[in-house]
Design a protein around this nucleic acid. Structure first.
Lengths: 279, 279
DNA sequence: AGCTATATGTCGCAG
DNA sequence: CTGCGACGTATAGCT
């Protein structure tokens, strides 16, 4: 603990919420940060429980083990890690490496912190499917709680949706006289990205991908073309066109075997790079 | 800042690393935690830069905007968020919701923190592909650095690998007299999970999935069966069997259309649930 | 709640 | 490095 003089005797006595030796801000400080450095397990448990109740985002630095059981099961021996508990029920355990958490829990679950023997136990549960993460801290270096408020939503470009718009805006980028008739056209095999007709009036199925495609995309297109041909149950041959920035060799071979086509196209026109994010 | 008396005059004067008003631990304290609460931008910049140089895992709480440009591009307006910079070059920006970061950078990149106007700019770059995240803080509530050490690796069970072992241990779980001949057998379409022969000596291709399968898995199996049939270029018909816990209706239909088969099997025998993670 | 497809997917492994 | 497939994938949209 940072404010040692304010700490109760290091018994396992429960620390009352409002009297807890949080620091960094008064309880009505707009910063909404509450931090404990090197707390006892009991202090940390109270701190975390109170933060969860308030709806704060909680972080914990410390040495811990992790066990998971649910769709699969895992164990992780002792090490220094960072744990994040989100107010929406999500939980993340990060090591020093990797973009992905070593263990996690999706949103919708519940968090719980309590002392268990000589450990702080942080438990994150969810149902459907029933899953649990148990994080056992032998030492907590820092426990922070922050009342995060974020009204903004991400604006993203360069997606498959952008590629779709680009084609609908100017169908000629696919092929001259291509005419889109429907998007998300339903078939027994699933929804077709763009369905239309070529210059000769033949049906065309487009499958769009925002990036370089492999064999899986070819199979997907193949399924749709098959399904539409059955659907029309006429003797017309349905064209299948994969639209993506590029294609791998194996995918191109597969495409040829199945009589399908490829049109190279980026989600967005390649701009003569303008402003950079940092000057 | 928490330790106000230790802080230099709040000019933009650079804070010397070793004299920086970190707290929570001395520089050689084994806890290896260094935290600043409500630092100035200049203080935070120095703190973060020093932590990156040391190879610490860095976290930042505060109000910021985020811009990303690379494979795609995005912008995110001002809000309270949590930023994590890992020593391996990974970066994560988390809001109060979702398991996934709202913005991120995979490992391998470089981090940088500096004052830019009235903001703290945290920049995370990587090459191949060239990508940048720029996080601009208007306010930093807390900046922590922790020398994370984690020697352990995750032990995971219930994977496709477990399913494969289960079949190789006792091929009869697939079908009586099924005989595995190879795993990862190479074909022009990719590697087959398990290749073998049935009681009649006919070639069998197994595709394994650790969980319920949809149409994509059927297509994958179909590709492999096609490829093996061409490969053998004999007139033998190759059987294709999807092995997974369960299958969706549409996938089952697709499977039937292509003359393929399904065998229900879990990655691990369903145990009469033993010890729970918490008692 | 289940099904389907996308994703700045990430990650690991092989060529 | 690219290619390819698995992943406790997560996430969104739709029935």
């Amino acid at each position: 603990m940072r404010i040692a003089f304010a700490r109760p005797a290091a018994t396992d006595a429960t620390v009352t919420d409002s009297d807890a030796p949080t620091n960094g801000s008064d309880s009505d400080d707009p910063s909404r940060l509450r931090t404990l450095d090197e707390p006892t397990h009991a202090e940390a448990a109270d701190h975390v429980e109170a933060a969860i109740d308030r709806g704060d985002l909680v972080t914990l630095f410390g040495r811990c083990t992790v066990r998971y059981e649910g769709r699969a099961a895992s164990t992780l021996g002792p090490g220094d890690r960072h744990v994040m508990l989100k107010p929406d029920g999500a939980a993340l355990v990060h090591t020093d490496e990797g973009q992905q958490p070593v263990n996690w829990q999706p949103p919708g679950g519940t968090h719980e912190a309590r002392v268990e023997g000589d450990h702080l136990l942080v438990c994150c549960r969810r149902e459907t499917p029933s899953e649990v993460i148990a994080v056992r801290f032998e030492r907590i270096v820092q426990a922070s709680a922050f009342a995060v408020s974020d009204a903004e939503t991400l604006t993203l470009s360069g997606t498959e949706e952008d590629l779709k718009r680009r084609i609908l805006d100017d169908p000629a980028v696919v092929e001259s006289s291509f005419q889109p008739l429907a998007t998300e056209r339903d078939t027994p095999a699933g929804a077709v990205d763009i369905y239309g007709e070529d210059a000769d009036g033949r049906p065309v199925v487009l499958e769009l991908k925002r990036r370089r495609v492999g064999p899986d995309a070819v199979s997907q297109l193949h399924r749709y073309v098959d399904a539409v041909e059955r659907d029309l149950h006429a003797d017309v041959r349905v064209r299948g066109v994969l639209v993506a920035p590029s294609i791998t060799d194996r995918a191109r071979r597969l495409l040829a075997e199945r009589g399908l086509e490829f049109v190279p196209l980026e989600p967005e026109p390649t701009a003569p790079d303008g402003d950079s994010l940092v000057e």
